Amino acid sequence: MTADDSLGRLDDDSYPAYTMGRAAEMLGTTQGFLRAIGEARLITPLRPEDGHRRYSRSPLRIAARARELVDHGTPIEAACRIVMLEVRLEEAQRVNAEYRRAAAEVHPRTAA
């Protein structure tokens, strides 16, 4: 892999670029918080050969939302459940919009 390939991966939301310590620092939280939301299966860190947890930007955005809820007094288990439902809703809305676009292409509305 070339240096250019490695730098290009930093633009990839799913590339596990951040250690647990760095991820916690970026979120302004603790490593224990990241472990807790991992145990609740809200996010799953990758574990390369060295065995250390590594995070990509995509799950860190999810973790940031959970932290926001916890900071406002929501218990961590409830915050994880809320965020899981929000993610599922967002995905369902995206799929629905795709179906609507596809249906509009197949059955375009005719002008009166």
Rank of each mutant, 00 (worst) to 15 (best):
E90S: 09
A64Y: 00
E39M: 12
D11Y: 12
R35S: 11
R101H: 09
Q31L: 05
D5T: 06
P16A: 13
D71M: 06
S14A: 14
A17F: 05
R57A: 04
D71Q: 08
R67L: 08
H107V: 10
R57N: 15
R57L: 14
E77P: 00
G73T: 04
M1E: 11
A103F: 10
A40S: 10
R100K: 07
R22L: 07
A23T: 08
R65G: 03
R94H: 13
G32Y: 01
R88Y: 06
L89Y: 15
L42P: 01
E86H: 08
H72W: 05
T110F: 01
G21P: 07
P45V: 06
G38A: 07
Y55V: 00
A92F: 10
D11E: 10
A79Y: 01
G51N: 15
D13P: 15
R47I: 02
E86C: 06
A63T: 02
A111F: 07
M84I: 11
S6F: 14
D5C: 07
E105S: 12
C80G: 03
R67I: 01
D5H: 12
A66L: 06
R54G: 04
R109D: 13
E91H: 12
D11H: 14
P59V: 02
D12C: 09
E25R: 15
A78Q: 13
A112S: 15
A40R: 11
I37L: 11
R54D: 03
V87C: 13
A97C: 04
G21Y: 12
R101P: 01
V83H: 03
P108H: 15
V106W: 04
E77W: 04
R88D: 15
L7R: 15
G51E: 11
G32E: 08
R22N: 08
R101L: 14
S6N: 01
A104P: 04
A36F: 04
E49N: 07
T29I: 07
C80I: 01
Q31I: 03
D5R: 09
M26N: 10
A64P: 02
R109A: 09
L34G: 07
R100Q: 10
R54I: 02
S56T: 05
A36K: 10
Y15M: 14
T2K: 12
P75N: 11
G73D: 03
L69Y: 07
D12K: 12
L69P: 00
P48C: 08
Y15Q: 11
Y55Q: 01
I43A: 02
P108K: 09
D71C: 03
L27S: 10
L42C: 05
R81G: 02
T2N: 12
L42K: 01
E77S: 03
A3W: 07
Y55P: 00
S58K: 07
L46N: 06
T30L: 06
L27P: 09
Y15H: 13
N96T: 11
A92E: 11
R41F: 06
A3Y: 04
M84Q: 15
P45Q: 05
R67F: 07
G38W: 00
T44D: 09
A64S: 12
Y55C: 02
T29W: 05
A63G: 06
E98P: 00
A3G: 06
A66V: 02
R35M: 14
C80A: 05
G28S: 11
C80E: 00
E77M: 14
V95D: 11
L7A: 09
R101E: 15
R41I: 10
R9E: 14
H107L: 15
A97I: 04
D11S: 13
E90F: 10
S6C: 03
R41H: 13
L69W: 04
P75L: 08
I62P: 00
A78H: 12
